[in-house]
Amino acid sequence: MAENNPFPGENNTGHVWDDNLRELSNPPPRWWMIGFWLSLLFVVVYTTLYPSWPIGQQATPGLLGWTQIQEFERRVAQVEARRAPFEEQIANLSAEEIIADPGLLQYTLASAKVLYGDYCAACHGSGGQGNPSYPVLADDDWLYGGSIARIKESITNGRRGAMTAHADLLTEAEVDALSTWVVELAEGGEGSAEGWDLYRAKACNACHGEAADGVLATLPDGEIVTVGAANLTDGIWRFEPGGYESARHTILYGVNQQGVPQTRDAVMPAFGTVARVDDVEVRKLSPEDIKKLAIYVHQLGGGS
């Protein structure tokens, strides 16, 4: 084909298509060749200084001795050094003092948000809205009280709800009457006199309180005494979807009752208890982390 090259004075290979499309044979630009050789030099220098070439289960260590683990540890140390003054204050101050300090509170909430996402969001939702059948933390309805002390107590020791299964203790008519009465209260009604009489006759007030609001007593400092029984007078249902059938199910099968297959499950793990692993004390969360989370949850629901 070269002997029939229609462009004999041009530096091409002689390959011509469609009369004028041809393959040229020009060298690359000088800047491109310089970049090419510099890139090769960079590879040689980089692989000499840093871990690069695999040899068995390891890689060449490099003259600098740099590793990703060392870099990670260095960065973590930098972060911990920045956090240290705040963490020291959190360890030494009470939750109330932390809340009173806007700057420290902002740091605490930011730090606790990460802890909340790791340990709490799976059950209580990313914003405290509560996943199905788990308590909402973004309202002011508290089963065990919403003070900082009570929230810390819940996180540290966990909670395990308890309600007796009444399937063998009540007649169908009594279950129906109590379920209907609970719905009346939840919808803002006063509840029938017959319902109140049955409520007290069956000792429901021993856990839910005389006013059916879950409060057994109120202490002089405003702290409430409760066993975690639900407030029956508001429209908040501990177990979805709420309503007559939900109330009836809870009355019949209770909460956390052994040997009752249809019982409600209501268990929160303890995050502050200490266990021993290989003679080392281990806990899920430190006291400082629990304090942070208590403040975070308190702020979500407005506390009490």
Rank of each mutant, 00 (worst) to 15 (best):
V182C: 08
Y296Q: 07
L24V: 07
N5P: 06
P54Q: 12
T164Y: 09
D140Q: 15
A177E: 15
T250L: 07
S147F: 08
P8L: 02
V76N: 15
L24G: 03
V114H: 12
T67G: 09
A81P: 09
R75G: 08
D118H: 12
P135V: 10
M268N: 04
P287V: 00
W53D: 02
I295E: 05
P135T: 02
A206N: 09
C123G: 11
A270P: 10
G117T: 01
F86Q: 12
E71G: 14
G125W: 05
G127V: 00
L143G: 12
H166N: 15
A91N: 06
T263K: 13
P241N: 04
I34C: 03
E174F: 07
M33R: 14
G146H: 04
H249F: 02
R83P: 00
Y134A: 05
A230H: 12
A149F: 09
V79L: 12
G191V: 03
L170K: 06
Y296K: 01
L170W: 13
G158W: 07
W17L: 13
R200K: 13
S304V: 06
L38W: 09
V267L: 04
L216R: 08
I98R: 13
F86W: 15
P241K: 02
D176L: 12
G222F: 03
A77T: 10
S304H: 05
P269Y: 06
N4L: 15
S246M: 03
K113R: 15
D278F: 00
S133E: 13
I295F: 03
F7G: 11
N26E: 14
G35E: 04
P54M: 00
E23M: 07
E288D: 14
P6F: 10
K202G: 00
Q262H: 09
A112E: 10
Y134R: 06
T226I: 11
V215G: 12
K291P: 05
P287H: 05
G214A: 01
E87V: 00
W17R: 01
E281Y: 10
W37I: 07
A81L: 11
V225L: 10
S39Q: 04
E97S: 14
D19R: 09
V227F: 06
L285D: 14
R75V: 11
G128Y: 11
L232S: 13
D279C: 00
R238D: 07
E80Y: 12
N26D: 15
E174P: 11
P54N: 09
G161L: 07
S25V: 02
A81S: 14
R159G: 03
I224M: 14
W237C: 11
Y296A: 05
T263N: 09
D139H: 12
G56I: 02
D168Y: 06
N5E: 02
P6Q: 03
Y107E: 05
S111N: 15
L216N: 05
T180P: 07
L64T: 02
T226A: 08
A193I: 03
E194V: 00
W181M: 07
Q258T: 03
L24Q: 00
A167M: 10
A165C: 01
L169F: 14
N5K: 05
A122P: 01
E80T: 09
Q89W: 00
D289A: 15
Q58N: 15
P241Q: 02
I151V: 15
C123A: 05
L104K: 09
V43Y: 13
P6D: 11
T13W: 04
A138L: 04
P261G: 06
E174I: 01
Q257W: 03
H15V: 13
E10D: 12
R22I: 00
